[in-house]
Amino acid sequence: MKRSGFFTRSVILTVLVFFHLPLMVLVINSFNASRFGGTWEGFTTHWYSDLFRNREVMEAFKRSLVIALWSTPAATLLGTLAAVALHRFHSRLQKVHFLLVQLPLVLPEVLMGFSMLLFFVAMGINLGLTTIWIAHVTFCLSFVTMVMLGRLQDFDFTLLDAARDLGATRWQATTRILLPLLWPGILASALLAFTVSLDDFVITFFVSGPGTTTLPVQIYSMMKTSRSLPIINALSSLLLFGTVITVASIHWLTRPARKL
């Protein structure tokens, strides 16, 4: 292996500092007694206890969890079915299908959010938890499909033929062979859908109604009004911690299967 030059090394270092310095400052400031975080004024966990006492934040967090819990199963089911269809069939229909699945991943979120808002207005559907749920299922579906497609590519379909040859019915082969083997992939994509739902701001912002503030929308309004900034630090640090755990678990669940 050749050593990389000075230029490349400095780019790597710059990018890594660029990526992580802001996040580190955020975490450090969440323990900083100073209200504005410019200077270090001593260690405190005061902002965390403030955070847990903040009714609005806690309500919004619960609402986000409920939405994510309801969107995840629907998106996982629809997305897994879509992946199976895309993997097994190669008709022109699947070309259109694949294009549609990719669309929510490419379309700018403003367009998705605004078009859904207009759609609900045109259909006379009141904005609220239902509209948020529909929006979340829509974009989570695409994420699930992409992960599941990757997992299906690694799946050895001759195992199913073997099961059928040994006398298993199609149903038995699906439930006893296919599902147990695909389980880690399904779990990883569900986890991804859950995170993406919990995280979404832009689309939710467009399709949420009065009284259906989710956690990101709550953070947005706290940022806008510049009140309780240290609480945002504490909240961000906790969410960051959650992100690291989730990324690690997805990484672990989708690691390539060990060869026997």
């Binding site: 992580h20 802001p22 996040l23 955020l26 701001f201 990101p216 947005y220 940022m223 900034l229």
Partner: peptide, 29 residues
């Protein structure tokens, strides 16, 4: 390196913006 790229990628969008606001405001680092 992959992990170090993916962590900021998966961090909530608002939080990333907020982190930069903290760094660039008048008392920021």
């Amino acid at each position: 390196l992959q992990l170090l790229v993916i962590i900021p990628f998966w961090t909530n969008f608002l939080i990333r913006i907020f982190a930069w606001k903290t760094l660039l405001n008048q008392d920021g680092l």
